[in-house]
């Protein structure tokens, strides 16, 4: 009920901003521009959906940006024209991401180290591995079938697919329910017979895998594996999730909100671009929106 309300609030905000923009800048409402918006948000969207799992369990993942770079580089290495069928670089990227996430999850659950610290370490380490693997240089000369993944509406379709699957998983599978329970009250979840460690491990792994997928899409789109790519992506992703109403303390929220959060951020970015606002000011606006959205959400919760 509450999540529905906050989502509804987001929809209203989205429509208002959209309406205002289409009046001031009619070009906003054209098909190419709208496609542009969803294309621009698709990578952030994929990461945001992934980190939703982790935030729901009450954890956090700061390593996303570095994992994006690492899996992009690894995928690119397998994606030179004529080397392998396209499935191989894609799988390699996703698996590398999943491995990073899995390590995060293992250290969090078995090692009982705070997620903030674990994923901060992974953020640094994965970036290092990306630099080592690529020799510090961008990996270019990628095959055409691989580049196709980043072209046109393909990233959007990937984003939509990821969202749909996650939505079903979180709202209809027992595993999804367990994620909410673990985030809502870990002790009670354990006392209800839930495999808390397993659930957390799953969350971090799938978050990593989706970051890997995001890295693949990004590499395909910029047609290189960039070891320096993705800096700060984790914060954009977390921002989208939080704007979408998922609680940082876990147990509340969902993919629907995350999608809307990512959309809202994309529309505002696009609007500011259309209005020729300099990127310096854009950063300021983005910061205000993140805090403002959460503030509004919390006020609603109280009343």
């Amino acid at each position: 009920m509450k999540t529905w309300l906050s989502r509804f609030g987001l929809v209203v905000a989205l429509l208002c901003i959209g309406a205002a923009l289409s009046i001031v800048k009619p070009v906003f409402l054209t098909f190419p521009n709208l496609l542009n918006v969803v294309r621009q948000i698709s990578i952030n969207g994929i990461l945001a959906v992934g980190v939703t799992y982790v935030l729901l369990t009450g954890g956090v993942d700061l390593s996303l940006g570095s994992v994006v770079a690492l899996s992009g580089v690894v995928a690119a290495i397998f994606a030179h024209p004529g080397d392998w069928p396209v499935i191989v670089p894609v799988a390699a990227g996703v698996l590398v991401g999943a491995a990073c996430g899995g390590i995060n999850g293992l250290v969090v659950t078995k090692g009982r180290v705070a997620p903030f610290i674990v994923t901060l370490g992974m953020m640094t380490a994965a970036r290092g591995v990306a630099l080592v693997v690529s020799g510090g240089k961008p990996v270019s000369n990628l095959g055409e079938s691989f580049r196709w993944i980043g072209s046109g509406g393909v990233p959007v379709i990937v984003f939509l697919a990821v969202s749909c699957v996650s939505w079903v998983l979180l709202s209809n599978l027992r595993l999804g329910r367990h994620l909410y329970a673990v985030g809502g009250n870990e002790n009670a979840a354990r006392a209800s017979g839930i495999n808390v460690e397993g659930v957390k491990l799953f969350a971090y792994t799938i978050c990593g895998a989706l970051a890997g997928l995001g890295g693949v899409v990004l590499a395909a789109r910029i047609t290189t594996g960039q070891p320096n790519a993705g800096v700060g992506y984790e914060l954009d992703a977390i921002a989208a999730v939080v704007i979408g109403g998922t609680s940082l303390s876990g147990g509340v929220g969902g993919v629907g909100g995350t999608i809307l959060g990512a959309l809202l951020m994309g529309v505002i970015n696009n609007g500011l671009d259309l209005l020729n606002v300099s990127s310096y000011y854009q950063a300021i606006v983005k910061g205000i929106i993140i805090v403002g959205a959460v503030w509004l959400d919390q006020r609603k919760e109280k009343s």
């Binding site: 909410y180 009250n185 979840a189």
Partner: peptide, 22 residues
């Protein structure tokens, strides 16, 4: 501490240990 997940609905709390299958 061990009984309720306060932020979940009554329904979800009740079925938490009783759900079967995927």
């Amino acid at each position: 501490k061990f009984g309720l997940v306060h932020v979940m609905s009554v329904k979800h709390n009740i079925t938490l240990a009783g759900l079967r299958g995927w």
